[in-house]
Amino acid sequence: MSELSNKSAVENDSEPKVGLTPAPLWAVTLLGILVYALIVRSINSGGDFDPNVYGRFETPKEVQDGHPAVVLPDWFVPGRKVYGTYCVGCHQGNGAGAPGQFPPLAKSDWVNVEGPNRMVRIVLNGLQGPLKVNAVDYNNAMLAWRDQLTDQDIANVISYVRNEWGNKGSAATAAEVKAIRDATKDKGEQWTEGQLLQIPVK
């Protein structure tokens, strides 16, 4: 029968009492200090609550400065303008060209070479017949731009193409273009792949 007496002990347990000691002052003070610290920290190093400030940066200005200042070369804006007028129709705005017809300029193994020697010739006199770019075959014709574009225009657009879409290359100068223009003034017809490959890239 010890079982039963235990049972009533379980049921008749009184509920606990509550003391009325006030909340300790240290806790209130500490909370105040920490909340103040949170507010100060959020204002000082919360990136000005700007949506573009992520971990590595502290302020919106730092994000701006985080990009290496780009001083655009002289040829960039006029070059892009020429490209937008004469080239974009075939080679596309992103330099990808069109499969089978117009070879890409972006990351192309004809563009990413040491010098613009062949490119200047192609722009001056055009190109026709089969052509292998990045190990893909193309077969179409490109017009000559000798009469429409000045030396400066050609230098600008080639410099632009050689440095856009992830391409990396040296810029072309108007003097270089003039030299080639003079050297090829009797050429008359469009280039072929075979002829171009004879010409040094630089």
Binding site: Q64, V70, R80, Y83, V88, Q92, G93, N94
Partner: peptide
Amino acid sequence: LQPLNRPPAEGDVGE
């Protein structure tokens, strides 16, 4: 556009 802080222009296509 790459690089990012250059002036945008008509016909610009980036990734």
